[in-house]
Every structure is written in C-alpha cells, then in structure tokens.
C-alpha cells in the first residue's frame, strides 16, 4: 500500500516535470520574435510603438502552448495525487 502511494506521488511529480519540457518551445519562439522586433526597430526607429505592440501580442499567442503545459503540470501536482490515492484506497477497500 505505502509502496503504491509512493509510486503514485513520484510518477505525478515526474510527469509534471516532464510536462514543463514544453517550456523550451515558447522560449525559442519568443526569443526569435523579440530578435526580429529589435531588428525592425533598428531599421525603422519611428515605427517603434507599432512594432512593440505587435511583438507583445505575438509573444502572448506563442506562449499559449507553454501555458497548456503549465496547467497540466499544476493539475498533476495539486489535483492528481489526491484523486489517484482516493481511487486506490477505494479499490483496496472493495477488494478487502
């Protein structure tokens, strides 16, 4: 029983950590966007405000996949262990 609960907790933590690997993607994407925005401002300094707003918008949209991973990680850390342990205890009780 203790071993099973331990495996559940450990695997939930491992899964949360693995889910956050998705943070690499938005990081690279946003870096590219900001680099290009810097180039654009360097070429045309007068279009600074328009470029900045567009860049922020694009960054926010690119961030979405990272945030999906974050939501899954949060669910795995705060919600999943309690639920899985409850299910385990119930099945153990019904089995006797």
């Amino acid at each position: 029983m203790e071993l099973a609960i331990g495996i559940i907790l450990g695997c939930c933590a491992l899964g949360a950590g693995m889910a956050m690997i998705a943070g690499i993607g938005p990081g690279i994407g946003e870096g590219n966007a900001v680099a290009k925005a810097c180039e654009a401002i360097g070429r045309q300094p007068e279009s600074r405000s328009a470029v900045t707003t567009t860049m922020l918008m694009g960054c926010a949209v690119a961030e979405t996949t990272g945030l999906y991973a974050l939501v899954i990680a949060i669910l795995l850390i705060f919600l999943a262990p309690g639920r899985l342990v409850n299910i385990l205890v119930e099945t153990m009780n019904t089995l006797g």
Binding site: A60, E63, T64, L67, Y68, L70, V71, I74
Partner: peptide, 16 residues
C-alpha cells in the same frame, strides 16, 4: 479555451 487558459495561466504561474 485558449483565451481563458492564457490569461489564467499567466496570473497563476506568477503567483505560484
């Protein structure tokens, strides 16, 4: 769904 998750995830991740 993506609009809701984007806003909520940003604020929640900041506080966490």
């Amino acid at each position: 769904v993506s609009m809701a998750f984007r806003h909520y995830g940003n604020i929640l991740s900041g506080s966490v």
